[in-house]
Structure formats: C-alpha cells, structure tokens
Design a protein around this nucleic acid. Structure first.
Lengths: 206, 206
DNA sequence: ACACCTTTTGACCACAGTGGTCAATAGAAT
DNA sequence: ATTCTATTGACCACTGTGGTCAAAAGGTGT
C-alpha cells in the first residue's frame, strides 16, 4: 500500500479508475483482476504487489470513494441556506459537477450501496455511517420549517419533496445514460428542473 | 417445450419459481442451471429436456412474467377512476397484492429491466413495449385534469406526484426487505400511505 | 412376460476464467 | 560490480460452467 501511494499520481489514477469502473460494472464477485490490469496498462503482478489481494484493493476503493464524495460534494454544499428547496437546488448543482468529474466513483458507490451480502470491515462501516449522517444533514439540517403551509406534517412534506426531486433526477439520468456527461448541454435540463422546483414551491410553501 | 407444458402443474410451478428466483438474484450470466435444478428438485437432464438451453428457459420466463403482470396487475386496475391520486392508490393496492403472491416474478422483472446488455428476441421486445404502453395507460389514461390547480403545468404535476409516490413505495420496500411479505401487517403502512396521499391532494388539487 | 416408448437421472465433459504466485528480468542507486 | 526495488507475464490449482448421453426407471398395451 505504501508502495502504491509513492507511485506517480497519474499511474495511481489510471489504476484506480480502471478498478472502479470494473467493480462498478460487474460487482465484487464478477469483477476480474485480469481485466483491471489490462485496462490500467500494468502487469498482473503489480496489482498484487501494491494491494495484496482483490479484497484489499476493493476496500481501498471504498475508502477512497467515500472520502472523495465528502470532499467534492458534501463539503461544498452551503448549509446556511435555510430554504429546503433552494438547498436541494444548490446540492443538485454541486452533485452534478462532482458526478461529471468522477463518473466511476459515483457509479462505484452506487454499486456498493446496492450489492447484497457485501461485508465491510468495521472501519469502513463507520465511514459509511458517517457518510449517511452527512448526507442526511445535507438535506435536513437547519431548514426553516416556517416556510411550509402550517397545517401539514413537515417531515412528510420533506419526504415528498425529496422523493419528487430524486425521481426527476433518476429519470433524467436514465434518459441521458450512455451519453458522455461532459458533452451534454445541461442548460435546458436545469431550466426544466427549475420549473419543477417552482411548482413544488407554489404547492408546498405558504 | 410441449414436454414442459404437459407436465404436472405443481412441478411446472416449482421449476418456474426456482428459475425465476435464481435469475432474479444473480442476473442472466451468473445464474446457474445447476442451482436451478437443485432448487427445483429435478435432475440436471430434465431442464435441458424441457427447454433446450439456458437462453430458451430465460426467454420463457420473460414471456411468462410479462403475461402474469398484465393479468394479475394491469388488468385489475379500474381505469374508470378519473382522479389521478385515487387511481394511483387503487393501482398500489392491486400491485401490492400481485407482488405478495408472486414475489419471484416481480423480482425477476426488476432484474430484466435493470440488466444491461440483455438482448431479447423480437417477439419479446414487442411484448415488452406493450407492457410499457399499458403501464403508461395505467397511470395517465382518462385522468380528469380539471381537479388540479389551474395555473400549473399538468404533465409536470403528474410527474411530481408519480415520483413522490414511487419514492415512498421504494423506500418502504427497502425498509421491509428481507422480511417475508406474507407475514407483514400492512395496515399501518397503508395508513401512512394515505396520509401522504392526503398531503398531495391538499397541495396539488384545487 | 415381453417389447416399445417416454421420462428421468446424474456422472461426465471440455472449457473458460478465477485469484494469486514467483522466477526471471530490467533499472536505479551506491 | 553489487544490491535493492520495480515489473512482468507465464503459470498454477481450482472452481464452476452449460450441456450431453448411456443407462435406468416407469408406463402401457399385448
């Protein structure tokens, strides 16, 4: 592992990217170390020289990805925004940027979340819990609930808005999948997104 | 195939269930015919005596599942209900019942929808398109749009409501996963669900 | 009892691909 | 020239695959 970290950064990147992509696409069991080394352009031996096993490599990727999400996404959201929907809008912007610049990382994390029967060592479990906590804070912490209509259950309203927005984003992702993120002009989609947010505001706010 | 169809219905069921479960859990490539025959309680040879290959078995399952969804779900939704949210409520009831009684089928279809690079023969593709069409009609056909507030984009409002409801259902499913469907008392969840629908009505309807 | 046909079994096959190893090399540093 | 590290890829034992087929078992009519 120190061997790996004292490597040329570009080569590190190449290996990480190759491995992230492979795991994201095939899941842990079906991911092939042979394909990883081929994609990364290194000899088979090196992978096991840097990391000692497939599992160790995987754990490193998990930790790396968690860190990246926190640094490039969570930490960049302005928690002083008290308006729930505005907060969400802002978070969406930051997230999209991070996602565009780190496609493999986000896909990889998606796979980690979905895969059943994956057992992580305790330290990574902890990191994962922390990630969830921060993700929760991102959406709920310090929200001004007085903006909502008075007679409704605030938590339920939160959820409805959250689900609606996530639904839009998922549907958009599915529609755009296959296209190179970087090549897409997102402006019209932002436009559309804002219109949806507007409807939500008019419906749920005073 | 005629061999299979002239089999005792219970044995047919056992084989289908075993295969559906195996494919749903592992995807096409990783599904093992060995495990299927073991689960189904038949000898290895029989699977290839009934169906000639793994692929043929898979295609039969797809067709069977599509038919079942139409018969046990789509056809049972009352399209004369013009209220969008009421329609959704009704569809949810029917769907849950079908899902409880045919867990493997619904899981299997979920896997078929998600799996990438799956190529279906033309007739199944057609069946699939038809399924999508009916699913669309289920939610949008014959809806009374005059119930909504006047100044909003109806289609966008449809979508927001749909996403919110689907979001609730997905989150519930995740929360309950692992438990035996049949053993769950759904009443409190229906209660909760209705409360969410109520908020939606008060927010989006006149 | 026999023949004839269908159904059923599971040992067996060739093969593909796995994670991991290690002797051999190439490079760098002293 | 020597020592140490970085790097390669052929190789290994192993696991599991989809599919086959000779043999056995069951059923039916004569």
């Amino acid at each position: 592992m120190e061997k790996f970290k004292s490597l040329d950064v570009l080569k590190q990147q190449a290996i990480l990217e190759a491995a992230l992509e492979e795991f994201a696409e095939h899941g842990y069991d079906m991911a092939s170390t042979n394909r990883i080394v081929k994609k990364a352009g290194i000899g088979k031996g090196m992978l096991f020289y840097y990391f000692n096993s497939k599992k160790e490599l995987f754990h490193h990727l998990v930790s790396y990805s968690f860190d990246l999400v926190v640094k490039e996404y969570f930490n960049l959201v302005d928690l002083s925004e008290k308006d729930f929907i505005e907060r969400f809008k802002q978070a969406s912007k930051v997230k999209l940027k991070a996602q565009t610049e780190n496609r493999h990382v986000f896909n990889f994390i998606g796979m980690v979340m979905l895969e059943k029967g994956l057992e992580l060592p305790e330290d990574l479990q902890k990191q994962f819990k922390e990630l969830q906590r921060q993700g929760y804070a991102l959406v709920y912490e310090g929200i001004d609930t007085s903006l909502f209509k008075q007679d409704v259950d605030v938590e339920k309203t939160f959820n409805l808005i959250r689900w609606a927005i996530e639904g839009y984003q998922n549907e958009l992702l599915r529609k755009l999948e296959g296209q190179k993120m970087a090549a897409i002009d997102f402006d019209p989609y932002w436009q559309e997104f804002y219109e949806y947010l507007d409807i939500l505001k008019r419906s749920f706010y005073k």
